[in-house]
Every structure is written in C-alpha cells, then in structure tokens.
Nucleic acid binder design. Sequence first.
DNA 1: CTAATAGTGTCTATTAGACATTATGTG
DNA 2: CACATAATGTCTAATAGACACTATTAG
Lengths: 237, 237
Amino acid sequence: MNEKTFLANYDPKAFDIPIVGVDAVLFTYHEKCLKVLLVQRANHPDKGKWGLPGGFVDLGRDKSLEDTVVRKLKEKTGVVPPYIEQLITVGNKKRDKRGWSIAVCYTALLAHQQCSINIDDVADVQWVDMAEIGQVALAFDHLELIREARERLKQKALYSIEPVYALPKSFTLSALQHLHEVIIGKSIQKKSFRRRLEQADLLIDTGEKHTVLGRPASLYTVKPSAKGHKFVRNLEA
Amino acid sequence: MNEKTFLANYDPKAFDIPIVGVDAVLFTYHEKCLKVLLVQRANHPDKGKWGLPGGFVDLGRDKSLEDTVVRKLKEKTGVVPPYIEQLITVGNKKRDKRGWSIAVCYTALLAHQQCSINIDDVADVQWVDMAEIGQVALAFDHLELIREARERLKQKALYSIEPVYALPKSFTLSALQHLHEVIIGKSIQKKSFRRRLEQADLLIDTGEKHTVLGRPASLYTVKPSAKGHKFVRNLEA
DNA sequence: CTAATAGTGTCTATTAGACATTATGTG
DNA sequence: CACATAATGTCTAATAGACACTATTAG
C-alpha cells in the first residue's frame, strides 16, 4: 500500500484516543496582589466548581494549540494576553472522570485593566488572589496546575522581567519591583533591581510621571527586545 | 441531568479529536560527541524516513503520558533512561498528513553503554551525531523538536549538571566538562567548572581512578540530591 | 516645615574567567 | 628523563546585597 492509499483510508477514530483539551493559568497584578482567573464550570463533570479557562480543540477553527488557547482566553477576557507560554502537558487516566484525559496547559499574563469584559459583572468569572487559592473548590487537577505555573513564574522573576506583562503598558519601577517581590515571596534590594534593569537596557522611559504620594515616579514601557531576555545571574531565591 | 448520568452517557468519540502521540529526543554522549537516537519509520506516513522514538498512548496499558514515553523508550533501548523530562507539546493541522495532530515531546538522557540492545545490530535504530543531524531525512517536524531539545539542554548545561545523566554511572570530571562544552558549543574554564561542582557538593568521589594517558582521573558518581540543582549564576553562554 | 515615595552612591560579598603552576601517572 | 592529562592557586572582573543618602512631590 502506498502512502496516498494509506491516508485515504486512515480513520483517526479507529483507535482509543484520550480526551484532549487546553487550559490556561492567567495571572494578573491588581491591588498589590497576584491574581489568577477562574471560571465556574457550567457543565459536568465538577459542575459548579471553579476551574481554569480552557476547552477542547476545535479542529475546524483552530490551526494550532496556540489558536485554541487564544480563542478560549479571548472568550473570557475579551482580549488576547500579551504573554502566553506553554507550561506543561498533563495526561493520565485519573484526572478526569470522563476517562483518559490530556490537558495542554499554558501560563498567560495580562494587565488587570486590559480586560475589556468587566469581570465584576460576570458571575461565573473571577480573579482570585493567589494567597487565597487554597480556599477555592477547584475542578480536576487545576490546583496543581496553578501551583506549577506559579513556581515557574517565580523562577522567571529571578532571571527575567517577564512578569512585566502582568502590568499595564506603562508602569513604574516600584510597581514592577513589588510585583516581583510578590511573586518571589521576599523583598528585593531596590538598587539591585534597578541596576540590572538599567544595564540590560530593557525599558523605555516615557518621560511621563505618575504621582500618588511623595516624589512622582517615572513611567516606563518595555522594549520588544526584552521578551526572552535572561540575566546571567539570578536574584537570590 | 446529574453527573453520574452524564458520565454514563459520555462518548469521547462524539467530537472530532486530534491524533495524540508522544515522542522523545534521547541524547547520549559517545566518542566525544552528543548523539540522538533515531528510528526508521516502518509505516506510513513518511515511511522510510528517520524519526524520534515515540508512538500512541495505549489507554489500556498506560496510566499516564510518562508511562507511554517510558514504554516506547524501553522498546527501543531495552532500558529506562535515568533522565526523562517533558520538553514541549506541539499540536497543529499541518504537522502530520493524517490530520490534526498533537505530539507531547520529551527530552531523555542515557549513557551510551547502558543500552542493553546493541544498536549497531539493529538496522532501524541508530545514534546520530548532532553535528550531522541536518543531513538526515527526518519525518514530520522532528528536526525542529530535536533543535528545541538541544537548545533547552544547552540552557540547562549553563546552570545545572543535568547533562551528567548522558554519562555512565561513574565518570571523570574531564568527561563531564567536555560533555558540557560540546552541548554549550564553547570551551569552559576548568577551574570555574570544578569550583562550582565542589562548592555545590553534587558529586561523590568513588575513590577509583580512570587512566588513559597522563595522570589518572578520579571517578565520581552523582548524588541523588543533584537532580534539580540550579547554580545561582550561569556559565557564560 | 514633615511625611512619603523615588531614585542614587558606595562598600562588601560572591562567584566566574583567565591563566600559571603543581601533581601523578606512562614509557 | 619527557610527555600527557589531572588538579590546584591566585588574581581579576562582573554583579548582587546592604544600607545610607539625596531628590521631589503634597499639604
């Protein structure tokens, strides 16, 4: 049999195949806290519990897994987050009552104010403070996925400025530092933090100032070249 | 409808679902080169081309994706590699002629001598020098997966000693350093390399010596605690 | 002025790079 | 002895930590 005949007769449903979906751990920074987006499940299984935004691949509409996760995140937030990266794929017999199931899981970051949908007005979507994530009844293995995403984000906070994508387009250095501190779980020396930012030349000073109390702070935007930048030396864990 | 009824009636084949498989980029160190294991495809599509060891999940036999990749690697090498880690999941419409397809891809490391199957005696399995990988006709997107795995391994070589799992149980510091040099693609200062190993206390001196030419070298084994160790400062890329 | 937050100066500590030197085996 | 490879000593360079200091706003 040649390849053409083989392909013409190929039936993807001839074999037992696992259920496959995508999930996203979408973080943001709001009110000095790291928060994660949760969605209340409308359907079985685990109906009524909270879980990560996600769903099945639509073979007709999605050209790739990234299309699927972008589509699902847009459904819930109204926008496409500026940072989406694959986290881990979990697949086993136990995680879903429907049977052998695989979830391709992503980490995403979004500025709180960038949500065009007002999350407060929708009962089945909410931002949950990471400090309180243990108190929520979560579906499937989503608590583990969130913990994994948080741990990876922590590592990235030590050697990159990727957390910046959880902030608005322009932001103060103090805000960026505090976000890093929340993610890492300890305070950072202001001088160390600013020195490495300046040396790596990752930010642009907009010239604008942001005043709340005390001396006005410069507002910065992130250079496109900052994406993927890794400092050669980590901050202390 | 309650959850029990829902699950009783659930049909995983009611929806169009992608093809799902696992692949592994298995590296080893042999004759001063980094090599990757390739398998000649016995079936369509891309029959006759070389590709990564891998295959479909067996819902009956495999409890998890890790079971699948372990099973597939054991089939080809006769052993379970001491290091297996998830690399990336690729999923799109184009990568496989059979249709929408997902591959959960792993990186694995194995000592060359640990292969209980003599690869030289099997025509459809071979170790290929990474320096010559561009010359092999590879199936699907496997060249990209190999490049991705190599890049990740390079990063790890800069801040960990994970490449050590591509060496035999006991090894010399010179061998470990040279392996790192091959992976990173540049030479490393001997003193720097040894200093950080000593300080992190990751190895055990077996007391045995290995002599080829010149002063005999001490043989070391890796401590279990070395798994996952990250140096705070990278070697220069 | 004071309070509060932004931003800088400077010393120390740690650790990688460079490279010379010593150690230990073979023939 | 010469030669080869292993192992160490030591100086320099780069960069994070600590912490005191100055700057700029509001009221």
